[in-house]
Design a protein around this nucleic acid. Sequence first.
DNA 1: CTGGCTGTAACGTCATCTGTTACAGGAGGT
DNA 2: ACCTCCTGTAACAGATGACGTTACAGCCAG
Lengths: 143, 143
Amino acid sequence: MAANSRLTIAVHALAWLALAQRQGRDQLTSDQVAASVNTNPVIIRRSLGDLRRAGLVSVRHGPGAGWSLARPPEEISLEEVYDAVERDPLFGMHHTEPNLECPVGKGIRPALGSIYGGAEQALRRELARTSIADVLRQTLRAG
Amino acid sequence: MAANSRLTIAVHALAWLALAQRQGRDQLTSDQVAASVNTNPVIIRRSLGDLRRAGLVSVRHGPGAGWSLARPPEEISLEEVYDAVERDPLFGMHHTEPNLECPVGKGIRPALGSIYGGAEQALRRELARTSIADVLRQTLRAG
DNA sequence: CTGGCTGTAACGTCATCTGTTACAGGAGGT
DNA sequence: ACCTCCTGTAACAGATGACGTTACAGCCAG
């Protein structure tokens, strides 16, 4: 798959918001987040926009504005972040409809659909075990 | 991520080989597999080439040539197929190096690396529970 | 009202995947 | 040894999507 960095960007932004909050800075602008992630502020706004629609962060407009966590970092799991930023299923089906004359072509899609569903659930269960607070703790230990 | 259909193509081809084998047809050419998947034979050769390098199928050249399973379908797990056809990690890191002045930017990559590793392992463990024989069974039941 | 920041559209660039054509190379049957 | 069939792979076109950038409308505290 494509090396998709959306989850990385979102988790990085959330961890940075969690650290800033702990340090008493309640808001961060997209420019400030972008400076840590080292990318363009618009990328951050797009990512945090997804997280806002999922209810994980909130935003304040006007001067002195910025982003903050909508919940304590212990209560934000990577599964929720994954759901917020990842739209497409993990594995894609055939681009063109398989040959329905062939017994394999006829039944393969529902069979794979259920198998892929189980695999995605296993992935989510694992991501659910880690919170933004966990990520921040491991990040500060590694740094 | 990109809707990547490589795993789907490979599993479809293997299930079709397994069914053909059960019906007494020991070899299938890439044209015959392509007719069931409904794609170009070169796509099939590329996919089966990955599986051959992983030791899951074998190929015979010359006239009357074609592909066949290198092992019984009960002993080929989707985890092996996944490893054979999927080169990139599931989640990508930042495109540009994060800001190392920031404590989050400094430690986020090793932290995420270990978390992503655990998530990929959970995915693989789930894929390991299903064999090509299982896929074929479910496919024929669904068809 | 004003200044600062968000939200989003529009666009370019780049990488990747699928699909296609073309052709060199290997191996069994004669 | 030759033929013939099929594999293996390079080269290319088109589509898709991600990232990055610029630009601008909208919103709101002061």
